[in-house]
Design a binder for these strands. Structure first.
Length: 142
DNA sequence: TAGGCCATCTGGTCCT
DNA sequence: AGGACCAGATGGCCTA
């Protein structure tokens, strides 16, 4: 299972590097889903007037329930270039990476048996809750 | 093969 | 304007 971890990290890093390369040359032979959906018909005009488009009807298609709550801001869609999207993806991956680091840290604090396989994130959380309440009980009753 | 877990992408909102 | 945060969708891998 440790090797599995290593493999995951490896592939993550590889993607990471790929994206960084993509960002640096800002264009590559490897365009994927990013540009086949509606977003940019004018991705190549960086000095465009605004990055917000009116979406009166299109975006109601997918997540019908979203507009119940969150009715605060105007329903304008932020137009994002391919490069900006890729950069956002990189940031999101970094964010998830640090989240997982925190999970690993918590995992190490929580008592498990040595032969037990690695706790999932949800199990780590649940066990941490149990462990904390056990310890506070212990503290209060002494 | 179904279900659990995870990584990633994506578009929305919130915050600076 | 753009980054952070979030939740939904999707696809891959692994195990019972």
């Amino acid at each position: 299972m440790l090797e599995m971890q290593d493999r995951l990290v490896d592939s993550t890093l590889i993607d990471f590097v790929n994206d960084m390369n993509l960002m640096e040359c800002s264009l590559g032979p490897k365009q994927q889903q990013v540009d086949n959906n509606n977003n940019n018909s004018d991705a190549s005009s960086p000095s465009a007037s605004s990055c917000w488009s009116d979406t009166s009807e299109h975006h109601l298609v997918m997540h019908g329930h979203h507009h119940h709550h969150h009715s605060r801001r105007s329903k304008r869609r932020r137009i994002i270039t391919v490069v900006q999207r890729q950069a956002a993806n990189v940031r999101e991956r970094k964010r998830m990476f640090s989240l997982n680091e925190a999970f690993d840290e918590l995992r190490r604090k929580v008592p498990t048996f040595a032969y037990e396989k690695r706790l999932s994130r949800i199990d780590t959380l649940r066990l941490a809750i149990v462990y904390i309440s056990f310890m506070t009980d212990l503290l209060e009753n002494t």
